[in-house]
Simulated assay, not measured.
Amino acid sequence: MKFHLCGGLDAPDWILANIVTLSTIPSTRVKVLVEYIIHRIAEGTFDYDSALKITTDASLGVSDAKACIAALHFMVSNAAKFDVEDSTLSRELQQLGLPKEHTDAVVRPYWERREALQTKLLQESLQLPSLEVKAWQIQSGDTRHVVMRLKSTADDTEQEKDEAEDFVVSMTVEKFRVLHHGNVLIFGLSQDCRPIGNNMF
């Protein structure tokens, strides 16, 4: 079964394995753990000793306690990452086997802080500079290739832009057509891959 929580993929085995253990912790304590985790993601601090005490007081060993904390972190961070609605998250967690009261303990604090979580996760995500096409052409041989010269547009000053190193990308015409048709490449190129104007090397 595919889950929005998992980015449209199957749930990882380790999550499934820890659902039963997580269910043995009282739901009130699960809610506190989720709040600790949300604070960790949004603010960067985590009261690890208190979190371990909450779980070990529930008769869990340290390794099981750490696994439960990791599972809850996965649920909260992935829900924010994939912008999962509260109703969808509630349904999917119950499909994974988490009891209703435990599901509510996860969903409510997540939904209340969803925007803050998403903002923080976006700030910490890998962001690559955008590229502009300086020139391109089709090279013929045994197979035809589209060759493009690209330059990063992330530099701050015009001087740095002039000094920035160009990137040369080469791909088969067939691969280019697939990417261009799927809007992966938006460079103002015609569908038959012919040069526009004088944009030649």
Rank of each mutant, 00 (worst) to 15 (best):
A51L: 05
A51I: 05
A51Q: 02
L52I: 10
L52C: 05
K53G: 07
T55Y: 03
T55M: 09
T56L: 11
D57T: 15
D57P: 08
A58I: 06
A58M: 03
S59Y: 15
S59R: 15
S59A: 15
S59V: 13
L60C: 05
L60V: 06
V62L: 14
V62P: 13
S63V: 14
S63M: 15
S63Y: 15
D64P: 03
D64M: 12
A65V: 01
A65S: 13
K66H: 09
I69D: 02
I69M: 14
A71W: 00
F74W: 14
F74A: 12
F74M: 12
M75L: 12
M75N: 07
V76C: 02
V76R: 01
V76Y: 01
S77C: 08
S77A: 13
S77K: 07
S77T: 09
N78C: 09
N78D: 12
N78F: 05
A79L: 04
K81Y: 04
K81H: 10
F82Y: 07
D83N: 13
E85S: 14
E85K: 15
D86Q: 11
D86H: 11
D86Y: 11
S87T: 00
T88W: 03
L89F: 03
L89E: 03
L89Y: 03
R91T: 10
R91M: 11
R91H: 13
E92L: 00
E92C: 01
E92R: 01
L93A: 01
Q94L: 06
Q94I: 06
Q95P: 06
Q95V: 12
Q95F: 04
L96R: 04
L96D: 03
L96P: 01
L98E: 07
L98V: 08
K100F: 03
E101C: 02
T103R: 04
T103L: 01
D104F: 02
D104T: 01
A105N: 06
A105S: 10
A105P: 10
A105H: 07
V106P: 03
V106Y: 05
V107S: 01
V107L: 05
R108T: 09
P109Q: 10
P109R: 05
Y110T: 02
W111G: 03
E112T: 14
E112P: 07
E112K: 15
R113Q: 11
E115M: 12
E115Y: 12
A116E: 11
A116T: 01
L117A: 05
L117V: 01
Q118A: 00
Q118V: 03
K120G: 02
L121R: 01
L121N: 04
L122F: 10
L122H: 15
E124F: 02
E124A: 12
S125C: 07
L126S: 14
Q127P: 05
Q127N: 13
Q127W: 08
P129E: 13
L131W: 11
E132P: 12
E132F: 00
V133E: 08
V133C: 09
V133D: 08
V133N: 06
K134G: 09
A135F: 14
A135E: 14
A135P: 13
